[in-house]
Design a protein around this nucleic acid. Structure first.
Lengths: 203, 203
DNA sequence: CGTGGCATGTAAACGGTTACATGATTTA
DNA sequence: TAAATCATGTAACCGTTTACATGCCACG
C-alpha cells in the first residue's frame, strides 16, 4: 500500500497526542518539526480522509460539552500505530537538498563582487534567527517536557539543527573575511598596475 | 517573465563554459553542484527549448569535424547573461528543507529502541561518504582550477558543505553515545526493580 | 551486423503549494 | 449585527521524477 509521507506525519502526531483535528495537526507540525518539515492543508485534509477510510485513524466525537468550534478530531487505531511503527523502522530516504544560496554562490563569479557578500550576510541573519528559535524551543522543552519519553529524541533533533546552524554561522564569518581580503587584494592589484607594488600593508 | 530555477542553472552552467548540450549540462550539474542541487532531463530539455525561444541562449553548430555523436549544443547570449546576473543579484529563497531522518528521529519513541540508533548509524555512513567525496572534489579543484576566477566561490560551497557535514558527524557520535547510555540506564532500572540498585558500575 | 550504451526527448504521474470558497464562531 | 478570524475543504497549478520511446554511434 503506497502512502505518502504526509500520512506518516499525521500518524506520528496522533501517536504523540490523540484527538487532534487537521487544523491542530498542521499547527503542531509547524511548531515542532517546522524547521525540517512542512505540511499544508491541501495535503493534510485529503490524507485524513484517506487514512480514516483505511481504518488507520478514527474520527472521534467532538466532546459536546465545551463545543470549541466545529472540528473533526481523529485518533490512532491499532492498525495505524502498527503502520507508523513499520514506517519508522524502514531506512530513511535522504531527499536531495535544494539550496539556492549555495547555487547562487557557485555562480557568483558572474555577478558583481558585492553580490556574494550580500547573500552570505543574508544567510548569517537567517541562521542567527534560527539559533534563537532553536534555543527558545529547547528552553520550553526542558521546562515542559523533560519528563516525557519523547524528550531525548526531541532534544536530539534540536541539537542536530543547532550544531549544523552554528557550523554554518562560523563558515559565514570566515567566508566574509575571505571575500573582504580578496576585495582588498583586488584593489592592491589595481594599484600595483598603476604604481609601485606594496605587497604587505604596514602601519 | 516568470522563469523556473532550472533555467537559471542552465544559464549558469553555460556562463562557466559555453557550447554544452543538455546531456552535458545534466552531467555538469550532477558533478559540481550535485550535493545541493539536482536537475533531471525532464526539466532540462524543455527549459533549453524555452530559453532558446526567448533568445537567452542560441543553438551552436555542432562542429562537423569530429562529429561526436549527434547533440545540440547551446551558448549564452548577451540577454541570457544579463538575465543570469539579474537573478544572481536577487535575494536567494531558502526553501524549507525536508529531512526524513529528523522526522523519524522526532517520532522515534514510538518505535523499538534500536530503530533510532540504526538510523543514526545510517546517517553517519552517509556523512562519512559525503566527506570523502567533498575532499576528493576539493583536491581536484586545487589541482585543476586553482587559477580560475570561479575558484574562490567554488571552494566556499565546498567548505560550507564540509563544515555542516562534519558538525553532523560529531553530533552523530555524541547522539549514539547518549542513546547507548540511555539503554544502559534502562537496563539498570529494570535490574533495580528486581534487586538492589547498583547506581554506578565498578570493575 | 547487431548489441549495448549514448543522447535526446516526451508523457504521465506525483507531491506539494497556492488560491479560493465557505460556514461557523467569537468580538466589538 | 457586522467584522474578524477560525476551521475545513477543494481545485488548479507548478515543479519534479519516472518511465518510456527512439535513433545514433562505437565496438565486438
Amino acid at each position: 500500500m503506497k502512502r505518502n509521507r504526509t500520512s506518516y506525519v499525521i500518524l506520528g502526531m496522533l501517536s504523540i497526542e490523540p484527538n487532534r483535528s487537521g487544523y491542530e495537526i498542521r499547527k503542531a507540525v509547524a511548531s515542532s518539526v517546522g524547521y525540517f518539515w512542512g505540511e499544508s492543508y491541501g495535503q493534510i485534509y485529503p490524507a485524513l480522509k484517506q487514512l480514516a477510510a483505511e481504518g488507520l485513524i478514527v474520527p472521534t466525537l467532538t466532546q459536546a460539552g465545551t463545543a470549541k468550534k466545529r472540528r473533526q478530531q481523529y485518533a490512532l487505531t491499532d492498525a495505524g500505530r502498527a503502520c507508523l511503527r513499520g514506517w519508522l523502522a524502514l531506512p530513511f530516504q535522504n531527499d536531495p537538498p535544494r539550496n539556492e544560496f549555495l547555487l547562487k554562490l557557485f555562480f557568483a563569479r558572474e555577478a558583481d563582487p558585492g553580490v556574494a557578500i550580500a547573500h552570505i550576510r543574508q544567510l548569517q541573519e537567517l541562521n542567527r534567527g534560527a539559533i534563537g528559535i532553536l534555543e527558545g524551543i529547547e528552553k520550553m522543552l526542558r521546562q515542559q517536557a523533560s519528563q516525557s519519553p519523547h524528550f531525548p529524541y526531541w532534544m536530539l533533533t534540536l541539537t542536530l539543527g543547532a550544531a549544523m546552524t552554528r557550523a554554518a554561522l562560523e563558515w559565514g564569518e570566515s567566508a566574509l573575511a575571505q571575500l573582504a581580503l580578496a576585495d582588498a587584494g583586488a584593489i592592491e592589484d589595481r594599484q600595483a598596475t598603476k604604481s609601485d607594488p606594496p605587497p604587505t600593508p604596514e602601519g
